Simulated scan of single mutants.
Amino acid sequence: MTSVSEIQVDAEEINSLLFAAKNGQWNVVWKILGHPSKPRKPFLLNCIPENRRWGVLHQAIWWNNYSVVNKLLQFPTCDIRIKAKEGVSEIGPTGGKSAEEIALGFKRTEIAQLLKNNVSRLGAQAPETFHPLSSGLQDYVLSLLKVTLAAYKTAFQPQQIESKTFNDLLREVWQNVNAVPGRWKVARDKVAEAAYVVCEETCNNIKACKRKQEFYEAIINAYTIEENYLYDHLNTALRRQRQADYMPTADDLALGPYVLMYQLLLLFWNKLRKESSITYRRMRVSATDLEKYQVGTKFAWMSFVSSSVELEKAVMFPTCGPSGDKIIVFTIDTSTPSHWQPRNIEKFAMYMERERVFPAGAKFLVTNRTPDRTNTDQTNISLKLI
């Protein structure tokens, strides 16, 4: 089955999953998710798709079904911090409330205590930065984008899909959002809803956009505002992606529409010029991660990657990213013509850092590696975009 057809199957199962949970049909829920000891699609557990305000866990709480809640908590992917989308129920507004808060609101005291005693380990996952390309240069299918396209099929996908590959599907989605009258407004509302998870002000700014280009510019600008930590949340979510055993948090999935639109802009918006010269990136890593960047190694960065055309402006972001006591200064040759070339976003950025951003999933070859002559903790590594 191709990644494109998998997305369509996931879309159907997400709808079936949430419909079944809402109606207390737990046999259907287990058929889709599997069993905690033998999971089938556990990465869908924290999904709250378009036109839904609650996830599976919230619905089990509403049904006051202690055994179902207990079983859901046995899935390693179950995120007890999952927040409801904006909406009103019998207990009033539930937007932004956690599972435990909703349990308390409905006076499900035993379930609330169960949730309180449970410790989610999802957020403790160590986000990977380096993804080796061990079997050629095949395209990675970005798991977060894949689930987002399934969960928000009506909002983003055209009615008729002609694509055979994932990247072709992204192009179709872009054409649908960008060219079909009114579609950008649907995307705007979903992106604003996604931004609410991290920053209400960003959500309101995007929601207030009256023109399509204003909407596109707001997405890019918000990404560059360090104070709202959006950069941190988006790239942590992307670095948690796996080809197998994908375990997204609830917030990862909630941010999906924002991540998708930013990826589409970086790949296809003609207002963002491709960079084909040298760019620089400075990054702090552990000694173990440093050793992965050996000459001849091919790898992918699964997150959005900021770089600069000026070495002195290639600073490490203080709010997020990999950590360690080793410093790498990357010199990146971006001359290879491809849709992975970094885009010039400085016209729409909050700060003048001569910033060039690589789309998530860009692939590189390590061409050189030398210790820095003046800083024993720094290694200078040359990359070529492939």
Rank of each mutant, 00 (worst) to 15 (best):
D139R: 10
N118D: 14
E110S: 14
R273K: 14
N270W: 10
F317P: 03
T334K: 03
S16K: 14
Q138P: 08
Q213I: 11
N368Q: 13
Y66A: 05
S3W: 09
T249L: 10
R121Q: 14
T279W: 04
I80G: 02
I161T: 09
G55L: 00
N380W: 06
R284V: 11
W62H: 13
A218S: 15
V119S: 15
V295S: 03
L255Y: 05
K97M: 12
F348L: 08
R121A: 01
P93R: 11
L290S: 00
A20R: 06
V357H: 02
T94K: 00
R239H: 00
F130C: 05
T297Y: 08
A250S: 10
V9Y: 12
A155D: 10
W62M: 12
L169N: 02
Y231G: 13
K271N: 12
R40L: 15
A314K: 06
W26T: 00
W301A: 14
Y246F: 15
P371T: 05
L18H: 03
E193C: 07
W301H: 13
S308N: 01
R282V: 12
T154R: 14
E110M: 09
E13F: 13
N178I: 00
S37Y: 10
L133E: 03
S276D: 14
Y229G: 05
V68Y: 01
R354D: 15
Q74A: 09
F106E: 14
S323Y: 09
F166N: 03
I219S: 01
L170A: 07
S143Y: 06
G34D: 07
T224Q: 03
A151E: 04
T367N: 04
V177P: 07
L170D: 08
K185L: 15
G55R: 05
T148F: 00
H339K: 13
S3N: 08
Y216S: 01
N204D: 13
I206N: 07
G296L: 08
I80S: 04
Q263R: 12
L260I: 05
R171P: 02
F43Q: 13
S323M: 11
L142E: 12
L72N: 02
R282E: 08
K298W: 11
